[in-house]
Design a protein around this nucleic acid. Structure first.
Lengths: 189, 189
DNA sequence: CGCGCGATTGAGTAATTTCAAATCTAGTGG
DNA sequence: CCACTAGATTTGAAATTACTCAATCGCGCG
């Protein structure tokens, strides 16, 4: 839980008392490799803050092909946010690639925290702002860069993930087939 | 300005007094067709809330090709958010396609409003949440749908824009050439 | 050692882009 | 009202890019 406090205080300092009131909203959960936190059809009851481990969030299309919405490691947030915020059934999957621990937060918890503690609403807003920017960057990248450039951008942005994640998932993140990705970096240095 | 109040109260009710304190943060600006609100290299001083008119936000790549980040009409927000939130120089362009009026808000204004009025921080958070979800939807669409499906999704989502916006910009939004887009709906009904 | 998963390679195919030209349309000025 | 123009759309054909499918290779783990 100390990690959570550090995480919050990267945005805004809080008192011991405040942190004590925040803690009960989060529950900790240990996750094993290949375990699913969310599957299509589930209620997306929680969003997860990652304490340790590596996860991927993906959409499975009608042809059974995976498309990766995001990777997530320490201090990242993840959920099927479309389902979570609208309290609908999940369309996405969240699965563990490297075992670890996550903190779970319900939407009611998030909203109550925001209502009761202005600082927490601020915290969530700032996190969302950063998330929003990151998504917009990715859209621009998808629209304007070819697969080769996108691969390079990804490698520059997330060097640590490059090491730890099978290339085929990176391909699914970039929106190319794994064969194409393989050819990109074998040919072009 | 009454429109602004209505816009805010779609999320959260405010008192007359509160609205009076909010108003001074916004300045109104009339915009002509083909006028640029932001150009690459500018300071992205403002975000804009659209009272009327139609706008597009786009990225111009090294080949001089446009890639549309978003369209915007009444009650939408727009800016080069990457530059705005980081207070860096803009990489994007914001240009008027149908004349109208916008409200302008600086980042300092946004932050001060958020700090002083918890309700406004709430308002911004909720708006960001919706924006975040929309961007994620678009990423999933870009990854998992072919141009034909994306075109249909766009038409379903924004039927009014279909009428008012030249097809070539829709192509740039969907990430296909205008020729390809043209062929899509000429062949496939 | 052998299995299973991931990565690579090759060949053929499908989709999209590019470039060029023709057509269409809305707005302007005579 | 008509002719003209600029921009938008469509069409055609060739070139490019990425995909699919299939086979092979490589490696870690039991």
């Amino acid at each position: 839980m100390e990690k959570l406090r550090k995480h919050i205080e990267e945005i805004i300092p809080i008192t011991d008392e405040e942190f004590e009131s925040i803690k009960p909203f989060f529950t900790i959960r240990r996750v094993l490799k290949n375990q699913y936190l969310i599957q299509q059809g589930d209620d997306a009851r929680y969003e997860y803050i990652i304490m340790s481990g590596i996860f991927r969030v993906f959409y499975l299309d009608e042809d059974g092909k995976e498309h990766i919405v995001q990777f997530a490691t320490e201090n990242w947030w993840m959920s099927d946010y479309i389902a979570y915020f609208n309290q609908k059934q999940a369309n996405l999957y969240v699965v563990c690639m490297e075992p670890g621990e996550v903190l779970c937060l319900t939407l009611e918890g998030r909203e109550e925290l925001s209502a009761v503690l202005h600082k927490m609403e601020h915290f969530f807003r700032i996190k969302l702002t950063k998330g929003f920017i990151a998504l917009q960057q990715r859209i621009i990248s998808l629209l304007s860069s070819n697969p080769q450039q996108r691969y390079k951008e990804f490698a520059d942005l997330y060097p640590s993930l490059m090491q730890k994640i099978p290339k085929k998932y990176i391909a699914e993140y970039l929106g190319v087939s794994r064969e194409t990705l393989s050819r990109l970096y074998s040919s072009n240095k």
